Amino acid sequence: MKKVVLGVAILATIGLTSCKNEAKKDTDVNNAQTEQTSTPEVAMTTATFGVRGNCGMCKNTIEKAVNEVEGVASADWDKLRKQINVSFDDSKTNLDAIHNAIAASGYDTDKVAGSEEAYSNLPNCCQYDHDMEMSLQGEVKADETSNH
């Protein structure tokens, strides 16, 4: 009987110690979250400009190139309109760096011609017409562009 009572007492002590530690961990996590949210938010700059391309693989490559630029928060290339919407911290990067990153991946922007070497290494479906219009406005029909 003494062994049972002793066992229960030990388990109760372990349980209380464990609960105290969990409560302390929760408090630490809550304090960390409060500290993170109290920092000032960075103002983001958004821009939209033309980028030539054909297909979903182009979209992946273009967006990846932009997202690898330090300070870029988001990039979304519109296949039908041939344009990209970019959100970035202008204290860390600028539009020239973003245009150059896209061009280095082989794609023309409305400001910088794509690298010919990178372009030649793109898959056939991604080798776009260098004369295609960019930043198309108004209603754009899918059959007006390449269907890749």
Rank of each mutant, 00 (worst) to 15 (best):
K79P: 00
I102P: 02
E22V: 11
T37Y: 12
K59E: 14
T37L: 14
G15Y: 14
C55V: 12
H130L: 09
D131S: 13
V8Y: 12
N60R: 08
A73T: 12
S87C: 01
H99L: 04
D89C: 13
A104W: 00
P40T: 10
E41K: 14
A65Y: 08
C19T: 13
K111Y: 09
E22T: 12
A23W: 06
C58I: 03
A75E: 01
D131Y: 08
K64D: 11
N21V: 14
K64M: 03
S74W: 05
S135V: 04
T39A: 14
G7R: 08
S146R: 09
L136E: 04
A23Q: 10
P40E: 09
C58F: 02
E144H: 07
D143L: 09
A9H: 03
V29I: 14
C125D: 11
Q83H: 06
L95I: 02
K92Y: 00
E144F: 12
L11C: 08
A103W: 04
I84D: 03
S74D: 13
K25L: 13
D76G: 02
H99W: 04
S74R: 05
V140Q: 11
K64T: 13
E63N: 14
R81K: 15
D96R: 05
G106E: 04
A23N: 11
M134A: 06
V112C: 05
I98R: 02
Y128H: 04
V86P: 00
P123L: 01
N121M: 10
A97L: 03
E117M: 03
N30C: 07
S105G: 06
K79N: 12
S91R: 06
I102M: 01
V42N: 09
T48D: 06
T46P: 04
E68C: 00
S120I: 08
K64N: 10
V66E: 00
K20Y: 11
N121A: 14
F88V: 02
K59V: 11
L11E: 01
N54K: 06
E68M: 04
W77N: 01
I102K: 01
L6E: 15
T27P: 01
N31K: 14
N147H: 15
N147F: 05
S105D: 03
E133L: 11
Y107P: 07
K24P: 04
C126N: 08
V69C: 06
S18I: 07
S18Y: 13
P40Y: 02
H99N: 11
L6K: 14
F88H: 02
N31E: 14
M134F: 01
A118N: 00
V72G: 00
C126A: 07
C19Y: 10
S74I: 03
C19A: 15
T93H: 02
S87M: 03
D143S: 15
L122D: 06
D26P: 06
A73P: 04
I62P: 05
N31A: 12
A142M: 11
A142H: 09
V42K: 13
M132E: 15
K25A: 12
N124Y: 07
A118C: 02
M1D: 10
M57A: 13
G114C: 06
E139H: 09
H148G: 15
G53H: 03
V86A: 03
D26E: 13
E139V: 11
G138Y: 07
A142F: 11
E139Y: 12
T17K: 08
A142D: 10
G53A: 07
V86D: 02
E70I: 00
D90L: 09
K79V: 11
K111E: 09
A142P: 03
E63H: 04
Q83L: 05
